[in-house]
C-alpha cells in the first residue's frame, strides 16, 4: 500500500509538477471557451437553416450532419493538422484543434437543434405568423425557447463530451492538461501526474456530469 501511494500519489512529485499541470489546465479551459460557443452557434445555424430549407437542401443538410458525425474527432484533427501543410496552409495546433472540434460538434449540435426545432408543432409557427411575427422573430421568441427546453439533456450531454474531447489535443502536442501530465510523468518517472490529471478532470467535470445524468434519466423516464 505504501509503495502504491509512493508511486501513484507521490506528494513530492505532485508539488514539483503542479505549476506545469496548472498551465495545462489554463490551455484546456481556453480551448473549451473558444470551441463550445462556436460549435453550439454553428449547430444552431444548421438547425435553423434546416427549418428554412426546401426538400433537397434538407437532404443535403442531413447528409452533411451525418458525415461530420461519422468522423472520429481525432481523425478529423489529424487530417487537418498533418494534411493542410501540404497545401502550404500552416495552422497552429490550437487552431487545428478548434477547427476539428467545432466541425465535429457542428454535426452533433446541428442534429440536436434540428430535431428539437422540428419537434415543435407546426401550429406554433403558424400562430406566430398570424400574429405578424417574421420568420426569425418567430424562431427566436416562439420556436427556439420551446425547442431548447426539449433538447436540454442532449445539449448538455454533448457539451460535456466536447469538453472531454479537448484532451485529444495532446496528440498534436498541444500543451493542454493531459499533455502536461504526460510531460510531467516523463520528468518524474512516476505516474503521480497521471493520477493528478484524472483527479483534476473528475473534480471539475463531475458536478456537470451528475447534472447531465439527472437530465438524461428524466428524459428517458418521460419517454417510457
Amino acid at each position: 500500500m505504501e509503495l502504491f501511494l509512493a508511486n501513484f500519489a507521490n506528494w513530492d512529485s505532485l508539488v514539483t509538477v503542479w505549476p506545469l499541470l496548472m498551465q495545462g489546465l489554463v490551455v484546456t479551459v481556453q480551448v473549451v471557451l473558444v470551441c463550445l460557443p462556436l460549435a453550439a452557434l454553428c449547430g444552431l445555424s444548421v438547425g435553423v437553416g434546416y427549418s428554412l430549407a426546401g426538400p433537397n437542401m434538407r437532404r443535403a443538410i442531413v447528409v452533411m450532419i451525418d458525415l461530420l458525425r461519422s468522423f472520429p474527432a481525432l481523425v478529423l484533427l489529424v487530417l487537418i493538422y498533418y494534411s493542410l501543410p501540404a497545401f502550404g496552409i500552416r495552422l497552429s495546433a490550437f487552431s487545428a484543434v478548434v477547427l476539428a472540434l467545432v466541425l465535429n460538434n457542428t454535426g452533433y449540435f446541428g442534429e440536436i437543434f434540428r430535431a428539437g426545432i422540428m419537434s415543435i408543432d407546426k401550429g406554433q409557427s403558424e400562430a406566430a405568423h398570424a400574429l405578424g411575427f417574421g420568420f426569425f422573430r418567430a424562431m427566436i421568441w416562439i420556436i427556439l425557447p420551446q425547442a431548447a427546453q426539449r433538447v436540454t439533456a442532449p445539449l448538455a450531454s454533448n457539451a460535456l463530451e466536447l469538453i472531454k474531447a479537448t484532451s485529444i489535443a495532446s496528440i498534436v502536442a498541444m500543451p493542454e492538461l493531459l499533455r502536461s501530465a504526460r510531460v510531467a510523468q516523463e520528468l518524474t518517472y512516476n505516474p503521480t501526474p497521471l493520477t493528478a490529471v484524472a483527479v483534476i478532470f473528475f473534480v471539475l467535470l463531475w458536478p456537470f456530469s451528475r447534472w447531465v445524468s439527472v437530465l438524461e434519466r428524466r428524459a428517458i423516464i418521460a419517454r417510457g
Partner: peptide
C-alpha cells in the same frame, strides 16, 4: 460516475502508462 466523467483518452493513457508502475 468515474467512467462517465473522465475523458476517454485520459483513461486509456492511465491504463497504459500508469498501471505498469503498479
Amino acid at each position: 460516475e468515474l467512467f462517465r466523467t473522465l475523458p476517454q483518452l485520459v483513461i486509456i493513457i492511465f491504463l497504459y502508462f500508469a498501471l505498469p508502475y503498479g
